[in-house]
Design a binder for these strands. Sequence first.
DNA 1: GATCTGAGTTTACTTTTCGATACTTAGAAG
DNA 2: CTTCTAAGTATCGAAAAGTAAACTCAGATC
Lengths: 171, 171
Amino acid sequence: MPMTAWTELAKDTGADLRLDRDTSNCSIARTLEIVGEKWTILILREVWYGSSRFGDFERVLGCPRNLLAARLRMLVAEGILATESYQEPGSRSRPKYVITPKGMDLVPAVMGLLQWGDRHAADPEGPAVLARHRECGAPVGVQIRCGEGHAVQAEDVESVPGPAFRLKLVG
Amino acid sequence: MPMTAWTELAKDTGADLRLDRDTSNCSIARTLEIVGEKWTILILREVWYGSSRFGDFERVLGCPRNLLAARLRMLVAEGILATESYQEPGSRSRPKYVITPKGMDLVPAVMGLLQWGDRHAADPEGPAVLARHRECGAPVGVQIRCGEGHAVQAEDVESVPGPAFRLKLVG
DNA sequence: GATCTGAGTTTACTTTTCGATACTTAGAAG
DNA sequence: CTTCTAAGTATCGAAAAGTAAACTCAGATC
């Protein structure tokens, strides 16, 4: 999906100056800034699988406590998780972590990673987890689709400059 | 999408032993092992946008040369990129990097990240890049779908133990 | 044969992130 | 008022990443 609209502009202009796409405004990079750190996606995976307490995450992930605390704090600050409290009988109330709608919106991206791993890096025994549609039981996956409702092959995706497209000078 | 099938098993058994899901076989984690390092996804983004040469990546990403070389080497070793050669008139032939089918299979995952960023971390000016269906021009995005063809809400995805599901003892 | 060029490699140094363990804290129970 | 517990903090050495510049290498040109 080459963006010919800018690769043409980005040619050498003869002098020492040269134009390139300005990649500072990129939604992929911005998303990775938030969820691209080590453990973050795996914490979300555990939330989807039903964990909610600090100790749950620590035990099942084996993640260092200080990193776990930092990641949880950040996910809450970003509005991806929210804290509620639970109270075990005979204990004081403690915080637990639940996913927000903003966090649920990450499911397609993570399911994309899951799907790729199942296809290209699977354990010979098969997947440890199967995702299926609650209503009909059929296995689920992610698909690229267009606004017209067509399923789209990755090769048929075309990337074009958007409203915030900019060029930058390099040299 | 809690997996009740194992959260029930994972209760304290009264003694000092306790069962937990064994997360060592996870397609998400395995995928992140390969593409979860810094720069890797951004390199792939540039490949999708039309870059193919070492110097292209270096200029547009601002990534250190040593890391760029390491990431490219790894992507080729994993079969996500492949090297071909190009020849500029008057120059010797040099290597360039092209995406493989295995690499194209990552598009849904990365498009998921893009979509989330556009929705939740967008620049006020809007996105720098728009993805659309080459045939009909309509904007594209990723969707969760089941084998029966239904669009599935993230909340309606149910995760159940697969063939390689294991429990582990923690204590 | 000297020079140019793009694609790396190497080196040396700083900064950031990771990982393991010890320590603290706030309330409930004895 | 001491103990117990889950949820954190604090600390510190190790590993990885970032930065910058010098160096190599192989062919094409001069």
